[in-house]
Design a protein around this nucleic acid. Structure first.
Lengths: 112, 112
DNA sequence: GTATTTGTTTTAAAATTTAGAACAAATACG
DNA sequence: CGTATTTGTTCTAAATTTTAAAACAAATAC
């Protein structure tokens, strides 16, 4: 559709928000809380790989830490292309959610 | 994912915005302009049918009009469940797009 | 060395998206 | 009438995305 899917958008935003802590399991936790719904591991790792392959994300592998089970992590950060894709999806959302007539169904979106 | 897909969201919003003119081809035109990208016919009709089956949309068939080719149209409107689903996706978006740190990449989302 | 924890990869099924052919029914007009 | 054109919906198969969960890997704990 020439626009990020919802999951892709949420993952890119998660990487943005988590900054120096943006790696697979952390992203999964963050999004599970956001969605109030436990995501499977694959639900995060599969799109992460795709987003990287398409140039929306860059990644590098860390050294292991000395915590229990502290393996090497694969960290991600947004590329310029990734920011551009978020920009685009944000524009579409703004358009799509503006100018909605009153339906009398008890709710209207509020853009803080 | 327990949340509307992007296409589902856009179609529900289109039905909302188009009001008394919410039928397949019109929705297609509206979304094609919004996305700046010509959607195929199936890209609209397939999800429309699914959204109806799931109770997000109600529909009824009009009488033909006396315009050239003016066949009976299938009009749609949001159900309460449909409004609720939009409400939910709106909440998730608001959360996901708020509290983003400055990346110094030349852009930050503005919520009008 | 065996258990436990943190982390990534893989895989296959399910669901969604997409393009476009097919079909349907209306008016136009010779 | 018959054929063309327009508006509209249905169908369908391929491509893509999502999802769950098993497998694998590597670290510390004891």
């Amino acid at each position: 559709m020439d626009i990020l899917s919802r999951m892709e958008e949420l993952i890119l935003l998660s990487v943005w928000k988590l900054q120096e802590e943006a790696y697979g399991l952390q992203i999964r936790t963050h999004l599970s809380e956001l969605l109030n719904h436990e995501l499977s591991v694959g639900a995060v790792y599969v799109p992460l790989k795709r987003l990287k392959k398409r140039g929306y994300l860059a990644s590098w592998d860390s050294e292991p830490t000395d915590e229990r089970g502290g393996r090497s992590k694969r960290f991600f950060k947004l590329t310029e292309k990734g920011v551009g894709a978020l920009q685009q999806v944000h524009n579409v959302q703004q358009s799509a959610w503006s100018g909605l007539p009153d339906l009398g169904l008890g709710w209207k979106p509020v853009h803080s």
